[in-house]
Write a protein that binds this DNA or RNA. Structure first.
Lengths: 342, 342
DNA sequence: GGAAAATATGTTAGCGCTGAGATAATGTTT
DNA sequence: AAACATTATCTCAGCGCTAACATATTTTCC
């Protein structure tokens, strides 16, 4: 291992700024400025410093930097879950936008629990992150207060149906549900069923449901049957739940599912039960997942742009480190995918 | 906003340890010890301190803590991609194990690129993480050197077919491929096809392929046909690629896919093309994803325990902060799922 | 009852970096 | 050649916390 002089004598171990400065024959501050590309530096100096860094294999200590500058290149990310493919996709968008920057993601998973979220927010803030990305609008008062006091920029993703703390990025789930209903009604469907999952956790699913009901009501219709499972959405759950729904009400024309996972499960049920999809029973999902589109009959659904949401969040947050005067809402929109199942 | 006395006079803003100490009427160190639960503290003192913390809404500054103790409660996580569902599942395992601790995950995505990985490792190390979790064994020399010098604990996940830096957790993909082959041979299959994806990125898929070929060779057989797509695995890719394979060689009895995504796509192709799965054409995947098991005919495949891998990694790493003398290998195993497609 | 042990708290010196302002070296203008 | 910019560099005081050690204070035990 290398031996070199440091602050108070000979040291073994990790080299510091001081060591680099000594080797390059410049002051610590100059090294610091070379590293951070800040202020004017003579080319010759820069070269000497960079080669000293190279030679020592110096890696800056971010904790020290963060402490001195009371800021960090960290971006806090809070996701409700990683089980639902939607959130890894958001995270993918976040990472893709982060890739071209120096920022790094500090990720926490809340399990759809506002108190867990609160704890994570608190420990995130302890790192003085540049910004925090969270999901939805369900936060505890304490969480809101912490975020308020910290003055850190905050993006709330997925949903835009409420007033954000700072900036919201996503789509109107209520409207998406409503439009789904309108779309299906315009296709001639009248006898609607609904298959969903637990919506105490997934509030957005509920908003879509409400939008759907509003569209039906407006057309003088109602849901003829609905069935919800306890627990998260899954293909299996969709399959079983559609089966149960059809046992109770066999004369449904179209089923709207809480999301694509459920709908794909529904598709599989039809396959097993020999139900002609679309002719006999229409299926409609939400999200526009790949899996749905690769089905023998591409799923009729709504494309939510998860990747884009994550990506946009990062871009918007990095535009300015100060919260803008006006709360901002970015609608990433959605597209109804015709598909072949409804 | 609160006004209180700090180090050098009145300050507005975020309270520090000093403020808490002053309010509670104890020394800073005592507050620090209350927070970190270290050393003996009288109950009365603890109460005074915690209520001072409460009152001020004090949040410790981790950067300062990390600097002072030259360590952090961060765990670096490097994943090659988030597109392949497998890695979010590993991440889920990691988070689930982390949830009961104070540690937090600092996540980076390498895009299967060793140089990108190197850059991320370098910036991770800058935070003095407690440990680093990475995937596979393909690292640059510089990466190895940095990890070596830093002395942090390192887990290499997914694969156990090589010598780890510190600890490897996963399964033998070569053996899994081999066993798949043996299994299918024992089921009477003789005319094998293979449908895969780009394996310059996904080395493990290649190892499984090699294991499969070894099993065939041992039985005096060979692959009758194989088809690989450029690019990552996906349902669509599996579907199209199987179609192409069958055009070239229609008399295959069973197709082994590089993974479940591809195999599910293959299943969909059979559905569209009216090919009786299993009777006419066996399908075999790898991973044991939910989607494969929820197919009308559960996919025959191999269950890799991704969640467990992530979870085990964290547990093992936290067992000791020092690298053990012996490099360690943890085999999380795999299970052949009979399924109904082969 | 006094020494030793156990418990509870305080004091002090940094950890490695950055920000602000001082200083030095160079170039430009009159 | 003096006066002024401009550019490049240095000095130094912290950022907020923790480790190590020193100092009470109480308990235990013979």
């Amino acid at each position: 291992m290398l031996v070199f002089k440091s602050g108070k004598g000979f040291m073994y171990g990790v080299p510091t700024l001081t060591d680099v400065a000594r080797l390059a024959g410049v002051s610590e501050n100059t090294v610091s400025r070379v590293i951070r590309n800040k202020g004017p530096i003579a080319d010759s100096t820069r070269t000497r410093v960079t080669s000293a860094i190279e030679e020592l294999g110096y890696v800056p200590n971010r904790a020290a930097g963060s402490l001195a500058s009371s800021g960090s290149m960290l971006m806090g990310v809070l996701l409700p879950s990683l089980s639902n493919i939607v959130f890894p996709e958001v995270l993918r968008g976040i990472h893709s936008a982060l890739a071209s920057t120096e920022y790094q993601a500090l990720v926490g998973v809340t399990d759809y629990d506002a108190l867990t979220e609160q704890g994570i927010v608190s420990s995130l803030l302890a790192w003085k992150p540049a910004a925090i990305i969270m999901t939805g609008f369900d936060h505890t008062d304490a969480t809101r207060r912490m975020l308020e006091n910290s003055r850190v920029r905050v993006a709330e993703l997925m949903d835009i149906d409420a007033e954000p703390i700072d900036i919201a990025i996503g789509l109107s789930h209520r409207k998406a549900g409503y439009d789904s209903g309108r779309h299906l009604i315009s296709r001639g469907y009248r006898r609607f069923g609904y298959v969903g999952h637990d919506w105490t956790a997934d509030r957005r699913a509920r908003k879509r449901y409400e939008g759907l009901c509003a569209a039906l009501l407006e057309a003088g219709l109602t849901l003829k049957a609905e069935q919800r499972v306890d627990g998260p959405s899954s293909t299996i759950a969709g399959r079983d739940t559609l089966a149960r729904l059809l046992t109770k009400k066999p004369d449904i024309e179209v089923v709207v599912f809480s999301n694509d996972d459920m709908a794909v499960g529904g598709f599989f049920h039809c396959l097993s039960a020999g139900i002609a999809v679309k002719e006999k029973l229409g299926l409609f999902g939400f999200n526009g997942l790949d899996i749905g589109q690769s089905l023998p009959a591409p799923l009729s659904t709504v494309r939510s742009n998860r990747f884009l949401i994550g990506q946009t969040a990062v871009e918007k947050l990095l535009e300015s480190s100060e919260r803008p005067l006006e709360r901002q809402i970015v609608d990433t929109g959605y597209v109804i995918i015709e598909g072949a199942t409804a």
